[in-house]
Amino acid sequence: MVTVVAHPLLQHKLSLMRDIHTGVKEFRELASEVSLLLAYEAMRDLELTPQRLTTPLVEADFPMLSGKKLALVAILRAGLIMTDAIVDLVPAAKVGHIGLYRDPQSLKPVAYYNKLPADIAERRVFLTDPMLATGGSASAAIQSLKDAGAQSIKLMSILAAPEGIAVIERDHPEVEIVVAAVDSHLNEHGYIVPGLGDAGDRIYGTK
């Protein structure tokens, strides 16, 4: 299932990210803000339970988070900007990292790092990767999470291409994808069109 978050604030910020004239500092800030808005939607179904609290006026029951604890897992390197922003929203979440890069010739994912919370099987996992392009890296990362015991996984991306969505739906049909937009297609180099360029390069000022 794909959820496109069409909130006007998010769409405005995404348009600014697309602009070639947006500099590194502003791009990072926008990526963080968009990530928070995506997390707001992705976490809409977190369980709540009443808990007895005392306000300055009365004692009463109020909703508090319950159920499985959370884990934020970034696909390195670009996914870091998303987890760093979202952890401010859910500071009790544990953070993991999966290192993958896309071979420029084969466009296949190559793994080079994997560090996940030991109790990943007991947590709801939110996997972050700004660009869901070919889908190869995200699919491989989801498989790594499953191999480690994760059972509840959502994928959060800023942009997605139909080709990448199709790969996730084929390989991991139970994983919900939460995105800000689904763009037209991939070009011959595997980049999302119209897209916003290489997210990692624009976040870190590299080429």
Rank of each mutant, 00 (worst) to 15 (best):
L38V: 08
V178R: 02
P173N: 04
A39R: 06
P162V: 02
R102P: 00
S35T: 10
S184K: 15
V182P: 14
A140G: 14
Y40P: 00
G136T: 10
P50G: 02
S32W: 00
L9M: 11
G149L: 13
D103V: 13
R124K: 15
R28M: 06
K207W: 04
Y112M: 13
I120E: 04
V4T: 11
E176W: 01
P50A: 02
R44H: 13
H12Y: 05
D183Q: 03
S32A: 15
V2G: 10
V125H: 05
G197M: 08
E169A: 09
L37C: 07
A160Y: 01
K108G: 05
K13D: 12
L30M: 10
P173R: 02
R18T: 06
G96S: 10
V175S: 03
F126E: 04
P8A: 06
Q105L: 14
H7K: 12
E169L: 10
Q51D: 11
V58F: 07
E169F: 12
D119H: 02
G164N: 03
A148I: 10
E174W: 00
P50D: 13
G200H: 01
H189M: 11
Y113L: 12
E176A: 09
A161G: 02
K108V: 09
R77K: 12
D119P: 03
P173C: 04
L9N: 06
E47A: 15
D198M: 07
A181C: 05
T54E: 15
L155N: 08
H97A: 00
T3A: 07
E29Y: 00
Y113W: 05
P91E: 04
V182R: 00
V95S: 06
S184H: 11
V58T: 11
G149W: 14
K13L: 10
R202H: 09
L37V: 09
L116P: 05
A160W: 00
E33A: 15
A180S: 14
A148S: 13
D45Y: 11
A180W: 01
H21W: 04
T134K: 06
V95W: 08
F62M: 13
L72Y: 03
E122M: 13
P56E: 10
R124C: 11
S157V: 13
V175P: 14
A138T: 07
E41K: 15
I168M: 07
G136W: 05
I81E: 07
L76Y: 03
V179P: 00
S139A: 15
K146T: 11
E122D: 15
P50Y: 01
A138L: 11
A118M: 07
S157G: 02
E188L: 03
V175Y: 00
E33N: 14
A42Y: 12
L89N: 05
L145K: 09
K69Y: 08
D198Y: 12
L80P: 01
V179M: 06
Y112L: 13
G136E: 07
L46E: 12
D119Q: 06
V58E: 12
T22I: 09
V125W: 08
L186D: 04
L72F: 11
A150E: 00
P8E: 05
K25D: 15
V193N: 04
V125M: 06
S106Q: 04
L9P: 00
Q11T: 03
L127R: 12
A181K: 08
I165R: 13
L57C: 08
A180M: 03
K115M: 14
A6W: 00
E188H: 06
Q151R: 13
